[in-house]
Amino acid sequence: MTTIQIREVVERLVAASQRKPGAPEIPVVLDAGYDTPHIAHLRDNLPVEILGRLRSAHVMRRPAPSHEEFRPAAQARRDDPAPWGAEQAVTAANTRLHWKATAQAWVRLHPRLTRRAAWLDHDGPLPIIEGTVIRLVVQKLPSGGDNKPL
């Protein structure tokens, strides 16, 4: 259903001449309630870039090594990204409300998919859907609540 809505919006943008051929991809931002990897898989050559907040239960893996370097794929959750190795980008800034905020990014990670929910009726092997994972950690929350990484 969500992919149908995304397709309809893109078609309306094209019909209204709001998106020209060769223009950058349209960012589509999804909250954790959506299955971001599944929607990215179903985008069917739409000129969109899917950006979504993953549920904390998502297990992310590094790219599989070549056959010559066979080793188990490293996987981690957002609360312990150590198995992903060194991040490809990191930045930190002091903020008024959160004190120190740190963002880290890993490229070419993919979620470990299982034949449940959206993938239950998928024919053939489950796809590898690579993307960039950005992890944000703040030193404190203004409310004093638990500052889990996003």
Rank of each mutant, 00 (worst) to 15 (best):
G33D: 06
Y34N: 04
Y34P: 00
D35H: 08
D35Y: 03
D35T: 05
P37H: 01
P37N: 01
I39P: 03
A40S: 15
H41Q: 14
R43W: 09
L46G: 10
P47N: 10
V48F: 08
V48P: 09
E49N: 11
E49K: 11
I50P: 06
I50Q: 04
L51E: 07
G52M: 02
G52D: 07
G52E: 03
S56N: 08
S56F: 02
S56V: 04
V59P: 00
V59N: 01
R61N: 08
A64W: 03
S66T: 13
S66N: 10
E68K: 12
F70C: 08
F70W: 14
F70E: 13
P72G: 05
A74C: 12
A74S: 15
Q75W: 02
A76N: 03
A76H: 04
R77S: 06
R77Q: 08
R78K: 05
R78V: 05
D79C: 03
D79I: 02
D79M: 03
D80T: 11
P83K: 04
W84D: 03
W84K: 01
G85E: 07
G85S: 06
E87I: 01
E87Y: 13
E87C: 15
A89C: 00
A89G: 01
V90T: 09
V90P: 00
T91E: 13
T91A: 14
T91D: 12
T91H: 11
T91G: 15
A93D: 06
N94I: 08
N94Q: 11
T95A: 10
R96W: 01
R96F: 04
L97G: 12
H98M: 12
H98V: 01
H98C: 13
H98I: 02
K100P: 00
A103F: 00
Q104S: 14
Q104K: 15
Q104F: 10
Q104T: 13
A105D: 08
A105V: 07
W106V: 10
W106N: 10
V107E: 14
V107I: 15
H110M: 10
P111K: 03
L113N: 06
L113P: 05
T114F: 06
R115N: 04
R115E: 03
R115K: 10
R115F: 06
R116N: 12
R116L: 11
A117Y: 03
W119I: 05
L120Y: 07
H122A: 07
D123N: 10
D123A: 13
P125C: 00
P125I: 00
P125V: 00
P127W: 04
P127M: 05
I128V: 15
I128G: 02
I129W: 01
